[in-house]
Each structure stands twice: as C-alpha cells, then as structure tokens.
C-alpha cells in the first residue's frame, strides 16, 4: 500500500503515461478519494499546458542546415579533448561495457586493499648508524658556528675524510 507521499510522486508518472496498469488502477483509486492529490494533479496538468504554450515558438524554430559547419569541423580534424571530457569518456564507456567496469572496479579494489595492507604491514626500516669520532681542530675536521637569524644559532661540522656533515640548529633554546 503506497503512502500519500508516494502517491504524490506517482502523479508525475501518471500525467506522463508511465504507470503500469496495476499502478494506474491504484493511483486512480487514490485520486477518487484524495482532494489534495486531485488538486496537485490539476496543477501538474496546467503546468504541462503552460509549458507547451510557452514553447510553441521554439517548436516552430526551423533547424538551419548544419552540414556545412559539420563538414568544416571534420576537415579541421579531431578536436583536442579536455580533461573533463576524457574523464567523461571513461565514465560513459563503462556504461556500455558493464563487464569491463566491473573488472576495473575489482582491480581498483585489489590495488587499494593491497597498498593499504602493504603500508600497514611494511616493516619500519631504520637506517644504519655509524659512530665517527672526530675532534674539533683535528685535521680534516671543520666546525663553523653561524647565526642565520635572530634567536637561531647553527653549528656545522664537516669532515673531509668521512664525507660527514652534521648540522645543529638551535632555535629559541631548543635543539
């Protein structure tokens, strides 16, 4: 049993002649006893009448000959596709090829799930740590202290032999 709200929605299909015989019978029975829906039906039919009147002029609008313009476009070659047109092309192709779109969805789901699993399970790689003992003033060891801006100090230690560069930055008392 349809509720009143659904009957209201069914009125569009009623005026458009899109109801099945069984639905038509139910809606007609409801209309016979429902003043609100009967008034709504009247409004819908009046709206359709107004729309048809309003577009009498456009209906009479004769189409110009399109072929010369079409031929010129064909002669110019295939127009470049915008990114949105490209996306739409894929979307529309999927409508005509439901099996292909299902396969695409499965592949996408597999990639998303396997990537997620890999990220979840991937071991955290800790880089190897080497301790190199150097002394400031030692040959090949250069230590520079610079103050790049107010409140920030930096110290750069460079060793030529180990190819090592260490930078300390101290900002507002924080290392």
């Amino acid at each position: 049993m349809m509720g009143h709200r659904r009957y209201r929605r069914a009125l569009d299909a009623y005026v458009d002649g899109e109801l099945s015989d069984a639905e038509l019978t139910r809606v007609q029975a409801h209309l016979a006893g429902c003043g609100t829906c009967s008034r709504e039906l009247q409004h819908l039919e009046e709206l359709r009448g107004l729309l048809r009147q309003a577009h009498e002029e456009s209906a009479a609008e004769a189409a110009p000959a399109l072929w010369p313009g079409v031929r010129a476009r064909i002669a110019r070659g295939r127009p470049p596709r915008s990114f949105m047109a490209w996306i739409r092309g894929i979307w529309e192709a999927s409508w005509e090829r439901p099996r292909l779109s299902l396969a695409g969805a499965l592949v996408t789901a597999f990639l998303v799930l396997s990537t997620g699993y890999w990220m979840w399970e991937a071991p955290v790689v800790t880089p190897p740590v080497h301790t190199v003992a150097v002394e400031p003033g030692e040959e090949g060891v250069d230590v520079q202290a610079i103050d790049p801006e107010e409140g920030v100090s930096a110290m750069v230690l460079t060793t030529s032999g180990e190819g090592l560069k260490v930078i300390w930055v101290v900002a507002q008392g924080q290392l």
Binding site: A63, P64, L66, W67, V70
Partner: peptide, 29 residues
C-alpha cells in the same frame, strides 16, 4: 537528425547561435 538535435540544443541553450554551434560540434564529435 539535424532537426531534432538542433531543437534539443535550442531549447536547452535558448538562442540560435549557441544551438547551431552545439549541434554542429555534436555531429563532428
């Protein structure tokens, strides 16, 4: 098919120039 293609474009766009352009572009595409 030009009459109906043009009519659809004309009703959507509301003027002859745009409708003609859209219909011709549609056929070319």
């Amino acid at each position: 098919h030009q009459a109906r293609a043009y009519a659809i474009a004309y009703r959507l766009l509301g003027n002859r120039e745009d409708a003609q352009e859209a219909a011709q572009d549609a056929f070319a595409r």
